[in-house]
Amino acid sequence: MSENMQYLQSVSQLHGMFGFDKPTHPLISVVDVAEWEIPEAYLNLKMVSNLYSIGMKDKNCGLQYGRNSYDFDEGVLFFSAPSQVHSITKPQKRNEVQGWTLFFHPDLIRHTALGKTIDKYKFFSYDVHEALHLSEAEQKTITDCVNLIKNEISERIDNHSQTVISTSLELLLNLSMRYYERQFNTRAAQNTDFVSQFQFLLKDYYESGKFSEKGSPSIEYFSEKIHLSANYLSDLLKKETGQNAKEQIQQFIIDKAKTLLLSESDSVSGIAYTLGFNYPHYFSRLFKNKTGMTPQEYRQLN
């Protein structure tokens, strides 16, 4: 293990590392950020956590997430999922930053309805600079959900606690999804620019022959060039165009395939290779799935 790498496996380990009291629940905790002290000895420490986290903070706290710094001057909400890497880039004194962070272990929700749907909340994989900016009213609503959870885990655990905690978490996440959609709406002009960049890059990828050389482009190819996380870009495209990134790429392939089938003398196999398919039957399967007919049927019909 690297000297500067810390692996956090549990809520109890997190509390012990930062000097918090023993958690009242083994799988979930709400930490008051004002009480969080980060000594200089922790600078440049990288942490890989086995926990989900949801945090609301009111100013720059020196947290780096992946390649990006988390730097803001107003209250925002940010999320992270297990196995993501975090770095501490500046010390923090008590009461220097206000807010809260909620941590929970995957085992908390594993046998609940939320455990079956947690992957749909793709903002757990957004980059920090794509954090959710909230109005005062939205901040209060989210914080009320967290306070409900905090009160529940502070009381004596009973047969209803698991349900109350998991449904409160689910409400918090559904509200966050709603607020992210509002954020997409209020940034319509910026989003349109990102859509244009994506479409330009996709067209350029095809015209430069990269489909046949390297295969179909990945979502990560575009996200790195546009400087958005793959999930954020895909969600943004879905909001603006009705198709996520994967669907847009597939639709582009089908449109090009239709043109090539009608204007070229190449075999179906040759067209498949041109569009990045090593195995023509994968191309034929995708084409039929999207159009209802095989490439050869489409060519003969038209």
Rank of each mutant, 00 (worst) to 15 (best):
L51C: 01
S87D: 11
Q64A: 14
M47G: 01
H86A: 09
P91Y: 02
Y70K: 06
S49D: 01
Y65D: 07
V76R: 15
E74L: 14
S87A: 12
V85L: 12
M47R: 04
G55H: 06
L45E: 02
L45Y: 05
E74Q: 12
I54Y: 06
H86W: 10
P91D: 06
L43N: 03
L43S: 09
Y52A: 02
G55S: 08
V85W: 11
G55A: 15
I54H: 10
Q84N: 00
S53D: 15
P91W: 10
L43D: 04
Y52S: 05
C61R: 03
V76P: 13
Q84R: 03
N50R: 04
G75K: 10
A81W: 01
N44Q: 13
D73C: 06
V85R: 11
N44L: 03
A81H: 03
R67Y: 12
G75T: 11
F78E: 09
K59E: 02
G55E: 04
I88C: 00
N50E: 04
L77T: 12
K59C: 07
K46D: 05
D71G: 11
D58S: 11
Y65Q: 12
D71I: 14
I88N: 09
R67T: 14
V85Y: 09
E74T: 15
N60H: 14
I54V: 11
P82Y: 05
V85C: 02
P91Q: 08
N44S: 01
L45M: 09
N60T: 13
V85H: 07
Y70L: 12
G55N: 05
N68E: 15
F79K: 03
V76F: 09
L51V: 03
G62I: 07
E74V: 09
G75C: 12
F78D: 10
I88E: 03
S49W: 10
L63C: 01
G66T: 05
K57S: 15
L45A: 01
L63P: 00
V48I: 03
L63G: 00
S53I: 07
L63R: 12
L51F: 00
I88Q: 01
S49F: 05
V76L: 10
N44D: 07
G55T: 01
K57P: 04
D58H: 04
G66S: 03
K90G: 08
T89K: 13
M47F: 00
N68S: 14
H86T: 03
K59Q: 14
L51R: 07
M56W: 10
L45Q: 07
N44M: 05
S83G: 08
S83M: 11
Y70V: 04
F78Y: 15
C61N: 12
G62Y: 06
L43G: 06
N50F: 03
F79G: 05
G55C: 08
S69C: 04
S69T: 12
T89Y: 06
P82W: 04
S49L: 02
P82R: 09
K59V: 04
H86R: 06
N44A: 04
Y65V: 01
G75D: 13
I88F: 00
N60I: 08
S87P: 00
S69A: 14
S49A: 08
N44Y: 14
L43P: 02
L45G: 11
M56K: 07
G66A: 03
F79S: 01
G75V: 12
V76Y: 01
K59A: 02
D71A: 14
L51I: 07
S83K: 13
T89V: 13
K46W: 05
